[in-house]
Design a protein around this nucleic acid. Structure first.
Lengths: 356, 356
DNA sequence: ACGCCTTGCTTAAACGTTTAAGCAAGATAC
DNA sequence: GTATCTTGCTTAAACGTTTAAGCAAGGCGT
């Protein structure tokens, strides 16, 4: 069952109209030579019978499944919903289905996941590589979503540029000593964001980078990051490269009685789901995932369609046009001018101030 | 291209061994009558040639695609990664691929998404329905993941039971006035959780329910919830039915200078990604998504396999065995005994206390 | 020794589509 | 008026698998 069990096929339409199945096929696809009147009749009959083409048969004949694979390093990534939603939407608009594959953070499984998709006959795939890995030649068109600084990739947000925007924002507010917070040193994306932040802050500003994985390696997962001490050391802004880290910073600082934003500022990246609703709402940088997904799918589509003809680099990565999609700064309540009284926790806002 | 462009097919193996393609098929599937020695030779040859069966041809012949659809109300839901990962894993273990479809929170698109999956010939689907909707007969086996109180569904976490556990936890800590925080009144899941919370708290405890959608309807999205006033009114525990709301509550309270957990307690549901790393780490209730996904996929698998034979309720929902998977209470730092000094914000922890 | 069952394979058809090749009829060109 | 082109369709093969049906050979019971 499942497929189009009882559904009418092309022969049914052909029989009902007294023509051949080939003509029906041509009429519906607009490919061969069919008289306009007959095309219309075929269309009408197809609609009347509720005809639905068998994708399986088409796939068998044409070698195209109309399905794209989506490979993710770790579905548990909080950014994943945004990516999946955008890709699904873009693919759906382009007439593709999306098959997901999760590599659960494991590098070996990433290869295995790709193999599974390949066996299922995907026409192409979108890969968000596990940090630090490179995607080798896969055997089908591939679009990689990573960061522009990784060579040979296709489409990515301009993480560096986003960092620059945030750096400038903080500098403009008057911050002069900023703590940059990253999680993994091996992430190209994070390194780009940090590089951009430093560039945006400019030369006159003191910076230090705190890597969460290093702190946790010593003190255990979920340990405090010691940000209150950093604040006492004179840091007035905490710029995380992910909203998850920013949230961690925000709650740790608040818990220590340090007011955000009147004492110190906190910023993130990605505009994750909670960012607008925490108190204070997070100032962050948003990726234009819809555009990124559109570009990735369009690039794949181009290679897939063209593939039958020229076969220039049949199974290599999608072209080399490294698209760089701008990011957008979203200023909310977690940033403000640094306060000279920031050193000693005091002057908490009262409950009444909340509404403002 | 894409599919198994150059890959060897059954005829290649058959030709190499001097037998017929049918025999190869039987040998590999173990179905017909083939001598053990020949089976072995076929296996060896297949491996040698790197044979990969064409799923498209198989789908065409058998009417089974080996693909399950996953329909989600809104991929942006922060719980989605957990669900998708669990389903993908369970399906993958059962030999299925997973095609995703997002209904973007729109009820009309939910129907359309289901239709798209159906056209692609999925063998069955897992649906997480948009709150308030019921899934009508779809035309293929369906497993619904919702809550046991929705009739006719298949598999769900025991949201009520989870609420009971949390209610008991708070009652045991000594809380006597508890604010329950939900987002949407129309969510069956949330209503069950709230029902369970009330039951777990017991009769002697004062409860009030705050629905975020109502507050936001009046004051705008992302508005403060006025929790500091509630604390002043004597509420010592804030039990949200989602970690997202819990986080919102936690930050709002912290911002108002109300210490968690020494003044008031905050709890959530779902153990979302940030819950262990915020300060204080959230006490919450975790669903056993892996088990839920296994049950859903197993139920689908059963109906799909059996389908060719009996056709008892061919295209209805998967059996009526409403599985109820227990939830697990995770106690972290956001809950504690209520403090009589809770009414006036004071005695903030200093930065030094953080490490403890 | 004859019929019958079992074993191990083959032949052939089928799934529903696409597409190259072919062909008759009418239109156009000279 | 004949040769050529175009139009509008048909025929047939192909994609790679599964599976029902068939068939020859050998083993067994009587």
């Amino acid at each position: 069952m499942a497929i189009n069990r009882t559904g009418p096929n092309m022969n049914a339409i052909a029989a009902a109209l007294g023509v051949s199945a080939a003509t029906v096929s041509n009429a519906l696809s607009g490919k061969g030579r069919v008289s306009p009147e007959l095309v219309e009749k075929v269309r009408a009959k197809a609609a009347e019978l509720g005809y639905v083409p068998s994708l399986a048969a088409r796939a068998l004949r044409t070698g195209r499944t109309g399905v794209l694979g989506l490979v993710l390093p770790d579905i548990a990534n909080p950014l994943f919903p945004q990516i999946a939603q955008a890709i699904e939407n873009a693919a759906s608009n382009a007439g593709y289905g999306v098959l997901i594959a999760d590599s659960r953070g494991d590098i070996a499984m990433q290869t295995e996941a790709i193999a599974r998709l390949l066996e299922r006959g995907v026409d192409g795939m979108v890969i968000v590589p596990r940090r630090g890995t490179r995607i080798a030649d896969v055997g089908c068109p591939v679009a990689v979503i990573d960061t522009p600084s990784t060579p040979g990739n296709t489409v990515a947000a301009d993480h560096w540029g986003g960092g620059v925007q945030m750096g400038r924002h903080l500098a403009a507010l008057g911050h002069r000593k900023v703590l940059l917070i990253g999680t993994n040193t091996s992430s190209n994306v994070q390194n780009d964001r940090i590089g951009g932040l430093k560039a945006g802050l400019g030369a006159g500003i003191e910076c230090e980078t705190l890597w969460i994985e290093k702190v946790e390696a010593a003190a255990g997962e979920g340990c405090p990051l010691g940000l209150a001490e950093k604040a006492a050391d004179g840091f007035t802004a905490f710029a995380a490269v992910s909203d998850l880290s920013a949230l961690r910073a925000l709650t740790e600082l608040q818990r220590a009685g340090i007011g955000v934003p009147e004492m110190v500022s906190v910023t993130g990246f990605d505009d994750l789901i909670w960012s607008p609703v925490v108190t204070p709402a997070l100032t962050t940088i948003r990726m234009d995932m819809a555009t990124i997904a559109d570009l990735a799918v369009a690039a794949l589509n181009r290679v897939i369609s063209q593939d039958g003809e020229a076969e220039p680099a049949a199974s290599g990565n999608v072209a080399s046009e490294t698209d760089r999609v701008p990011m957008q700064l979203i200023v909310r309540q977690s940033t403000g001018a640094p306060n000279s009284h920031a050193l000693q926790p005091s002057n908490k806002p009262t409950a009444g101030e909340l509404k403002s």
